[in-house]
Nucleic acid binder design. Structure first.
Lengths: 191, 191
DNA sequence: CACCTAATATATACTTTCTATATATATAAA
DNA sequence: TTTATATATATAGAAAGTATATATTAGGTG
């Protein structure tokens, strides 16, 4: 899939690997991250398959070694369009080390769980601020990028609401547990 | 991370590989999927590291070859607890072939895009029905699993709302484009 | 009873994605 | 001149995900 993301970006303008990462971080950094280890091997493959062409460029005035500037070829545009109009093969995949833990919080220390949830709330509230600030900026990039940015904000808001709700439920549960435990204690002492 | 997911499941009860997949599909199938190619190598590794123990069992009355029943060891429980109380290392990762395409819909056929969006709406409306039906069932599995199920429903609802909103925006944009194109046509004809 | 099908169960090869790190160059500053 | 920093490419290796091969047994069918 990264292959097509790169082809899509080269649809906008010619770029070299380093610039591609920069671009993704600036535009989708809050939803999508990528590494050089994903970019360079993909560029190599795309080049070998004739989907992109390459020119080495001496950087004029700017830092660093020679850049490899890539352009999308006709063949590349054709394959990209074919992919774009395909039905998406696989459903959405959500992977989150926090949610993975959350499922099992029943096995651990409840107060520690609440602590981690509080950290998540803080993190996502900061994210939300940043996203709202950027929303206007994305408006200039056309409606599709703008709508994706809106989705990011919606997701962020929904998640914060859920986190706060969950915290309340867990706190209720903890106090419920404690009273149950105390009753057991009483019974033991009584017995 | 799958390593810890497996340790977590073995916290509930002893299981063999096939059962682990079944369990994940039944409980988190709508949010999380896993393959045997992820399960068996992980079980092997966990066993070699002494985090789980194994007994081969002749299936009594039931189909299939001998099962390898795994249990979590003391060492395994310790490592699991350490992980559980750790701060989540990485942020949420959302990967979706549909959203990946969506970003680039400006480069393709708009009517085809709307068609794909309609399919997504149908798919997620079916998902939502299924999830709402299951919500009560998850209640019995304890508050953490229930809250995760609620998150799934919330995410689903939010996404449908966003898809419908996006469709409207795109349709407005298409009719805007067409009128612009017609004006250009008129101008050409006029000129 | 021999044969076939379906469900159960494990295993492994392979691809893609992700992380970590090595390497090189040019600018700017000390 | 040396050093630090930003730019830029590259690759090894780990983790996750896909595809497929293989074996066993219950149960049905001829």
């Amino acid at each position: 899939m990264i292959k097509y993301a790169i082809l899509g970006l080269l649809h906008y303008t010619d770029m070299h690997g380093y610039r591609i990462k920069e671009h993704i971080e600036q535009n989708f950094g809050h939803m999508w991250s990528i590494n050089y280890g994903q970019i360079y091997p993909n560029l190599k493959k795309l080049y070998e398959d004739g989907l992109i062409s390459m020119t080495e460029m001496n950087q004029n005035g700017e830092k660093g070694p020679t850049r490899k500037l890539y352009s999308i070829t006709i063949k590349g545009k054709e394959e990209f369009t074919r992919w774009l109009e395909d039905s998406p093969e696989k459903p959405m995949l959500l992977r989150d080390p926090f949610l993975m833990r959350f499922v099992f919080y029943g096995f651990g220390d409840k107060n520690r769980s609440v602590e981690i949830i509080d950290n998540q709330i803080k993190r996502y509230e900061n994210d939300l601020k940043r996203r709202r600030k950027n929303l206007k900026k994305w408006g200039k990039s056309g409606i599709y990028v703008r709508l994706i940015a809106e989705l990011g904000t919606n997701l962020n808001e929904m998640f914060i609401t859920w986190l706060k709700h969950s915290k309340e439920e867990i706190l209720k549960d903890i106090s419920g547990d404690t009273s149950t435990e105390m009753k057991t204690e009483d019974r033991r002492i009584a017995g």
